[in-house]
Amino acid sequence: MFELFSYGDAGWGDEILRGLAITVQLAIVTLPVGLFLGFLAAFASMSKLAPLRYLGFGYTTVMRGLPEILTLFVVYNGVGLLINAILHWWNPEASPTEFSPFAAGVVALGMVFGAFAGEVLRGAFQSLDQGQVEAGRAIGMTERKVFWRIRLPQLWRFALPGLGNLWINMLKDTALVSVIALDDLMRMTKVAVGVTKQPFTFYLLACMIYWAMCVLSELVLARMEKRANRGIRRAS
């Protein structure tokens, strides 16, 4: 049975590993995009300007309420249509282009990650010790300096557990891009199933790989949390 998973022409090991590489790439590229959107959403929902607050609230609420697969289809089909419309308007003779599934995956998963991260970051900002911020101001720090020297370094400690959960969720959500024809782990598994007619074996293998990635992430995150909380006195 193991020759099925071997490397090379006989087995499906290399195809599945290539799919895994795409999955990992997608997750790693999405993370900074999602974090950036998350910070934007957090700042917007804490803004002094009411319209910005509504915008932040609307974005996080809508994105968290929609199925991820719907978001993915909206981005993939909608942005594709939009690009073609603009292209057609700019140059009527241009041939319609395909919106890359990878880019659609990054945008859609990033938007979902950003909405949840916005809430996590807002919560983290609000749980910072206000006394330290006041102390910073009292010794004459500007708001900008207070942000960079006092708020941001401590934000990490409060936001890490929430962001860690989001990372694991996003890692699992990458499986959805197989539906829009990106050759990730899930889709390569499907290809292998199509040829070998052993769906259970191969989907179980895919599950095991995702599982291993999640468990590994959890271990790394636990370490990071430990490191982030070093020097914090705890009541025991």
């Binding site: 694991i168 699992k172 959500d173 990458t174 499986a175 959805l176 197989s178 899930m186 499907k190 199933v193 007619k197 052993q198 769906p199 259970f200 074996t201 989907y203 179980l204 895919a206 599950c207 995702y210 599982w211 999640c214 468990v215």
Partner: peptide, 18 residues
């Protein structure tokens, strides 16, 4: 909790065929 629901769904729906 560690595997995508999509993979679980495929495991049951397509996997049962085996």
């Amino acid at each position: 909790r560690g595997t995508p629901i999509l993979a679980q769904l495929f495991l049951i729906f397509y996997g049962s065929g085996q």
